[in-house]
């Protein structure tokens, strides 16, 4: 109510104009992808490509690489998020409680991957992955070990904001004085209190892992993006349809998560 009516209207007009023009700019390639994938051989329109994409038995039989890629990316997402949370949440909590002196160092290390391009990391990781393959095998799933490094900066920022918003010290000390061990403190006291931050860290990691191509491609491993790229060499129409479908899927998941996060926050503020 603090803004004048005329400025408010002008602002709304400006908002719609900017979002509209930039929206059109972004809509163009998406419209083109739909148009490209619905072309019929002799001209006209057909939904054959999309029917093939959603016919899972045909996909399994004729395009096994796509199935491998989807499964690998699903596993990678799960593994990356798990390792990231299991490593970062206790470490960051512990640093706040007992080792405030190394906090700057941990922050520096976590933000470092922002300044090291993924391609540079690949160059240095090649010998490390030779050892990983020797000890753990050639499975694509071990890419998760490198992906954790890629998501560090984003996860650190989200978790740091979450931990900063609660009184870690008081919570932990109360739990300890009531006889809780450290695992209980982490699992039942800290984790529930930074739920929103964990969700947003996980969310950013999911988006990053699903979109990752560089490392998987250069180490000749499978993931979703490698599979789509490979598919593009065989059937460009189907590959473009698959790329569009997975992008829309990711968008829907992100939008849904934005509602989950905010409804939790608002319901908690109503309680208090």
């Amino acid at each position: 109510m603090s803004l004048h009516g005329t400025r408010r209207r002008r602002q709304a007009g400006f908002r719609w104009a900017v979002v509209g023009v930039i929206g059109l700019f972004f809509a163009l390639p998406i419209v083109a992808m739909v148009e490209f994938t619905t072309r019929a051989p002799g001209g006209g329109r057909t939904l054959d490509t999309w029917a093939t994409l959603f016919n899972f038995s045909v996909i399994d039989a004729d395009y096994p690489e796509l199935q491998h890629g989807v499964l690998a990316s699903a596993g990678l997402t799960l593994l990356t998020v798990t390792i990231m949370l299991v490593m970062l949440v206790p470490t960051m909590t512990w640093v706040r409680l007992r080792l405030p002196g190394v906090r700057r160092l941990v922050e520096f290390i976590c933000l470092l991957p922002l300044t090291i391009p993924a391609i540079v990391l690949v160059v240095g990781l090649a010998p490390v992955y030779a050892w990983v393959a020797y000890f753990l095998g050639e499975s694509s799933l071990w890419l998760a070990l490198a992906y954790v490094i890629l998501v560090l900066p984003y996860a650190y920022r989200a978790l740091d904001a979450g931990l900063g918003a609660i009184d870690v010290k008081t919570l932990a000390e109360s739990a300890r004085s009531l006889g809780a061990g450290w695992p209980t403190v982490m699992w039942r006291i800290i984790l529930p209190n930074v739920r929103t931050a964990v969700l947003s860290a996980a969310f950013l990691s999911v988006a990053l892992v699903l979109g990752e191509f560089t490392i998987a491609s250069l180490f000749s491993r499978d993931n979703l993006q490698v599979a789509i790229n490979l598919l593009g060499k065989r059937d460009s129409s189907l590959a473009i349809a698959a790329a569009l479908a997975f992008m829309i899927l990711a968008f829907v998941v992100l939008l849904a998560m934005s509602f989950v996060g905010s409804s939790r926050r608002s319901s908690r503020s109503e309680e208090s």
Binding site: M33, F213, S236
Partner: peptide, 9 residues
């Protein structure tokens, strides 16, 4: 989702 999807688009 830059990467491959964007190139295909």
């Amino acid at each position: 989702f830059g990467g491959v999807t964007l190139a295909f688009a």
